[in-house]
Structure formats: structure tokens, C-alpha cells
Computed example of a mutant assay.
Amino acid sequence: MKVSVCIPAYKNPAFLQRALQSLVLQQFSNWELIITDDSPDDSVQAVVQEYNDRLPIRYFKNTPAHGMPANWNTAYDKATGEYIKILHDDDWLETPLALQKMADALDAHPDCDFVFSAYRNQFLATGRTQDVHCSAFHQKLLQEDPVNLFQTNFIGPPSVIMHRNRPPYRYDLRTRWVVDIDFYMEVLRNNPRFVYIDEILVNVGIGEEQITQDCFRNREVEIPENYYLLQKRGVKALNNIYVYDFFWRNLRNLEIRSAADLQVSRLAVPIPPTVLQMVRRQRWLPLPVLRMGVVSKIYMTLSYFFRKRA
């Protein structure tokens, strides 16, 4: 088996049907479809039954539900393919050649474990679309050091990737907000080589109930996960100006004005002295001034050069 397409499903039968229909159209033949179902009802299973004769489906009902991202790992654990292609149930493939092109890229680059493509955001409530490509500059940053993903996730959501099926490549159950970039950093830490396909191969459905909407600007989520991820990658990453800039912006956007503001209930790791220094320096400016882009960027750069080294 060349490719295992893994769909961790949860209570989205209409969206799942769209994803499955995009798989029906695939011209690639050497693949299996793993669906692990966390739904409390049989709605997903009913859709799966409609496609049993058209797709190579292996369906598993999780009882009790495993939750996110444990359900993602459940699908991975059942995959037998040489490569894994995760596809969330509200996303779908753009072209019938999507699986073929990703698998061909890994075949052509046996020294790489990881491939990703350009994608199209589909805003489900409004119908607006947004094409997303990884610039040459961001590709260079990724080649230099995957911790540069702290700056922004310039790979994209998990549905845009395919990678070799290796046991270490699993999602960290302690994360939600940073689960994707943590995974990418881990894969690229094991093997820094990757392939980027500058063609839109995946549509990413964006709706009101997505995890990112639930977690955005939420101190109880962002603070513990960001500092947990920093601890995993090593606090010396703060000596990288892009990582430093990320934490500077994060403090500003969450309106952190004192060390006490960082002490949220889920925080289980110490705050680095470099970050505490940022907090003290940001407090010297009123928030409305600090939110001015040019002012913040100049002030951040000065703070970086006179920082307490991690």
C-alpha cells in the first residue's frame, strides 16, 4: 500500500460527503482510506456506507470518543501505507491528481519525509475564497530552522501535507492550538528536508466552529500551549529574532501587562526571563501606542538587540 488517507471524523456528515466525493475522483489507485469516527451518533457511519462500494474504506467507530488530536493518532495507528495523507472531514481535494502529485513528490525525493502544497481557504459562511502559497522567503526560513514556524504557520493546516509513515510522527495530545506546528517541527527536526508543491491541491473549509476560532486570543489556551511548545524546542529559540517577535506580538495581543497575567490555570512550565523582560518593556508604553504596527516593530527590534539572552 502506497498511501493511507486518514480522516478523523466528527459529526459532519455533509462535509464528509464532500471530502469523500473528492476522493472518488482521484486517479491514484494504490491507496486506502482510514476513517476513525468520534461522533456520538451514526450520521458519519451512514455516509460511509454510501461510499463503501466506491472507496477502499476501513471504518472504525471510537467508543468512547477519543477527542482531538487523539483521534488523529488513532487513524495514523491503523494506517498501513508507506505514506500518510491526513484529510480533515471539512476539507477536500481540489484536483483528481492531488494524491498522485504528493505521492510522486515523495517518491522522487527519497531523502525527504514531508511534502506540502499550496491550498485554498474556503470560508463556508460567506463563500469567500483565499489562495495561500508558501513564498520563497518562507521556504528559506523553513529550511534554515523549523522553529521559524513560530513566526506564522506558513505550511498551513494538516490537510495540506503528506509524509512518510513513521512511528515517531504523531500529534502531541497536550496541544490543540499549536498541534499542527508542533507536529511539523517534530517531523522536520527528525528530517529537515521537505518538498513544496506550488499548486493548489487542497481546499480548506473554514467555519465558525473550528478549533482556531475557539482558541484565538484566549489566554487560557494560547499561553500554556505557546510556552509548552517553546520548552519543547528549547528556550534558546528566543535568540531567533522571528521567535522573539512572535512572543512579543503574542504578549501585546493578549494584553499581558504583568507577570501575573501569564499565570493561567493550565500553565505548567516556567516563563523564561527573556519573556519577563519583554513584559516589563511593553509596560512602558500604553497599549494603544504599542498596537501601532511600526512603533511595535521598531520597539521590538530594539528590545531584541538589548535582550536578556536565553
Rank of each mutant, 00 (worst) to 15 (best):
I211G: 07
Q277E: 10
E225Y: 08
I223F: 08
V179P: 04
I223D: 01
V221Y: 15
I181E: 14
T152H: 06
D245K: 07
P192W: 05
K236E: 13
N190R: 14
V235N: 13
A237C: 15
A260F: 14
M162G: 09
I181T: 03
R252F: 14
N239Y: 08
L251M: 00
N226A: 15
Y171W: 02
G207M: 01
F216T: 01
E144Y: 01
P273Q: 14
M278V: 12
D198W: 02
I161E: 05
N203A: 07
V202G: 08
E220N: 12
L149V: 09
R266P: 13
R166D: 02
V275T: 03
I256C: 07
R170D: 08
R170M: 11
I181A: 12
I271Y: 10
W177P: 00
R249K: 05
Q210F: 00
R257D: 01
M185D: 11
L188F: 03
E222C: 04
F183Y: 15
T152M: 02
N240R: 12
E186P: 00
R174K: 02
C215V: 01
D198E: 06
R189V: 06
N253I: 12
D261L: 08
S159H: 13
Y196S: 08
V187P: 10
G234I: 05
P224M: 15
P273V: 02
N253W: 12
Q210I: 09
I241W: 14
I211V: 09
E144T: 12
P146R: 06
R164P: 12
I256Q: 08
L149S: 10
R176H: 04
T175Y: 15
P272Y: 00
E255D: 15
N153Y: 03
R217S: 04
P224V: 00
Y227H: 01
S159Q: 13
V202H: 09
Y171R: 01
L188K: 02
N165F: 07
W248F: 01
P270E: 11
R252Y: 13
N253R: 15
L173T: 11
V195E: 10
L229T: 08
F150A: 03
A259T: 05
N253P: 02
Y184K: 03
P167K: 04
L251I: 03
R249N: 11
I271S: 07
A268M: 11
A237T: 03
N203R: 05
T175W: 06
D145F: 04
D182H: 10
Y171D: 08
P158Y: 14
R174Q: 14
N148V: 05
S159K: 10
F154Y: 11
T274S: 03
E222F: 06
D180I: 05
D214A: 11
G205L: 01
K232A: 13
D261E: 06
R176T: 13
N203S: 09
L230G: 09
G205Q: 12
Y169C: 06
P192S: 08
F150R: 00
Q277I: 04
V179H: 04
T175C: 14
V204H: 15
F194V: 11
R193I: 00
D214Y: 07
Y228S: 07
Y171A: 01
Y196R: 12
R193S: 00
R164Q: 02
V235W: 09
Q143M: 06
D182W: 08
V160D: 08
L188G: 04
E144H: 09
V235D: 11
N253D: 11
P168H: 09
L238S: 10
I155Y: 10
Q231N: 12
D261C: 06
D198H: 15
